[in-house]
């Protein structure tokens, strides 16, 4: 068997824009247990259009690192079930997405929760736990 060259190569990074939304299944899980698996399953996820995934060579089920100067998280990648115009990925609003939100508010008290720039790359690391999001 040949050597797994991928193991020694840094996974390529791509710039993406992220926006956030709400999800009734995630809210349901939040009501019950914000430390539970169900909440994590609905929150630690990024959804992307098929074309963007092809462009980046990523596939559903991949673990990806989302990173910017404010934070770094590992989440699961899923393909959008809808037609997407491309260039934009989606996360349900949660402590995971909030780890990437800028501290810049122009002094006006409202962060850009729905307007996040980050880099995405495939990773073998484990999905970020909620406990590690409390630690600082």
């Amino acid at each position: 068997m040949g050597m797994d060259v991928g193991k020694f190569m840094k996974n390529p990074e791509y710039e993406i824009k992220l926006t956030t939304h709400r999800d009734i299944f995630q809210v349901e899980a939040l009501e019950y247990d914000r430390f539970g698996d169900e909440y994590k399953k609905h929150s630690a996820v990024v959804v992307m259009g098929k074309d963007d995934m092809n462009k980046f060579g990523l596939k559903t089920g991949d673990r990806v690192r989302l990173m910017n100067s404010f934070g770094s998280i590992v989440v699961e990648l899923r393909e959008s079930k809808r037609e997407e115009p491309g260039g934009l990925a989606f996360m349900v609003n949660s402590p995971w997405s909030n780890a990437l939100v800028s501290d810049e508010t122009g002094g006006r008290g409202i962060p850009e929760f729905k307007n996040i720039n980050a880099k995405i790359s495939r990773t073998k690391d484990e999905i970020t736990t909620i406990e590690s999001l409390i630690d600082r």
Partner: peptide, 13 residues
Amino acid sequence: SDPLSSLPRSILS
């Protein structure tokens, strides 16, 4: 309320 959950981590230190 749970600000640690709903606010950006970048401002929470």
